[in-house]
């Protein structure tokens, strides 16, 4: 690993001032992604600003029934928190479905938002990658694409976003609060990550001098929510397809639906087309299938990930069916 200067930020103000004045600095939270990327020579900061001791570790109830989650809350603390487990089961399930217990003990909420793709061509310096080296091409196109995206991809990049947590946050209308020496602003989670287009190296709306300080969840439309993840082994693997869903049904009619997909797109994919079909529709498997068809209508695939389109449709239907029938999900 290339060396760097290490600065331990004693408070948020110092962290923001340091990142604003050092031209090639990076914040270090849990380290689970950044340390790996530095070892792989993909991230090459001159200065690493350790923010892990900043007091951004609260999970607080908001007036109106929402929750504010500090950016440095560990994944394991988030998954275990009573407020999260009771109001947002989908968030707890998404976190527990990701990584390993060791990694969840280290990884932070803010870092989860900023983790980079696990596309093997992005990691492999001998391969072309527009994300790692803008303009160099994309070796994934025509390559091994089992883990790549089918929605929102471009001719420049088909990498999938790796997060489970972000899929749940996208479904729940989360907002990200970011701070810099210039002030504070809020970004809806669904606008936080960019689609690749012709600039796949531009991954988020975060400016280089901004720090994610918290994530806010509004009061849930329903506590009946669930995360379902399909992967190549039973645990400790990235999603081939995942679905975060919340569903409210009254008199056999869908009165509220929140749906997002993971493993299939370069960003956590809010399934707005499916939601449109579901709202007001009879709560039946047929409606669920129509919603899934509508969402995947724009999908494009490679030889290696064509299966994901049908797998995503079926996983959407299965997740909604679970929510409809399984009383324990409430």
């Amino acid at each position: 690993m290339r060396t760097f200067s290490y600065v331990r930020a004693p408070d948020v103000e110092t962290a923001l001032r340091t990142i604003a004045t050092e031209p090639n600095a990076k914040f270090l939270g849990g380290g689970t992604n950044l340390v790996d990327l530095m070892r792989e020579n993909i991230e090459r900061p001159d200065v690493v600003v350790d923010i892990s001791r900043l007091p951004l570790t609260g999970i607080d109830e908001l007036p109106g029934g929402g929750v504010r989650i500090g950016a440095l809350v560990r994944n394991s603390s988030l998954a275990a928190h009573p407020l999260v487990r009771t109001r947002y089961p989908v968030v707890s399930q998404a976190v527990l479905g990701g990584a390993s217990a060791q990694l969840r003990n280290m990884a932070t909420v803010g870092g989860n938002l900023l983790q980079r793709t696990r596309c093997l061509y992005f990691y492999d310096e001998a391969s072309a990658c527009n994300k790692r080296e803008p303009g160099s091409g994309c070796s994934a196109l025509g390559g091994f694409t089992r883990n790549h995206g089918v929605l929102g991809v471009s001719d420049h990049c088909i990498a999938a976003h790796p997060s489970d947590l972000c899929v749940a946050l996208a479904a729940l209308d989360a907002e990200v609060e970011v701070e810099s020496t210039r002030g504070t602003r809020r970004i809806p989670l669904t606008e936080f990550h960019h689609l690749p287009g012709s600039t796949p190296h531009v991954e988020t709306a975060l400016a280089p001098d901004e720090l994610v300080t918290s994530v806010e969840l509004p009061a849930p439309v329903t506590t009946r929510s669930r995360y379902r993840k399909v992967r190549d082994r039973a645990s400790y693997a990235f999603a081939l397809v995942s679905v975060a869903a919340a569903l409210e049904v009254r008199d056999d009619t869908v009165t509220a639906a929140r749906l997002a997909l993971g493993g299939v797109a370069p960003k956590p994919w809010r399934a707005t087309e499916a939601e449109r079909v579901l709202l007001g529709a009879p709560a039946t498997e047929e409606s669920f299938r129509s919603a899934a068809e509508a969402e995947l209508a724009s999908a494009t695939s490679q030889d290696g990930n064509d299966f994901k389109i049908e797998l995503a449709r079926r996983t959407i239907v299965a997740t909604l069916r679970d929510l409809l029938t399984d009383r324990s999900a409430a």
């Binding site: 380290g31 350790d50 892990s52 990694l103």
Partner: peptide
């Protein structure tokens, strides 16, 4: 007391 992966931890942290 919490289990972590020491390969992804910087000693200084």
């Amino acid at each position: 007391g919490e289990r972590i992966n020491s390969c992804l931890a910087l000693a200084v942290q």
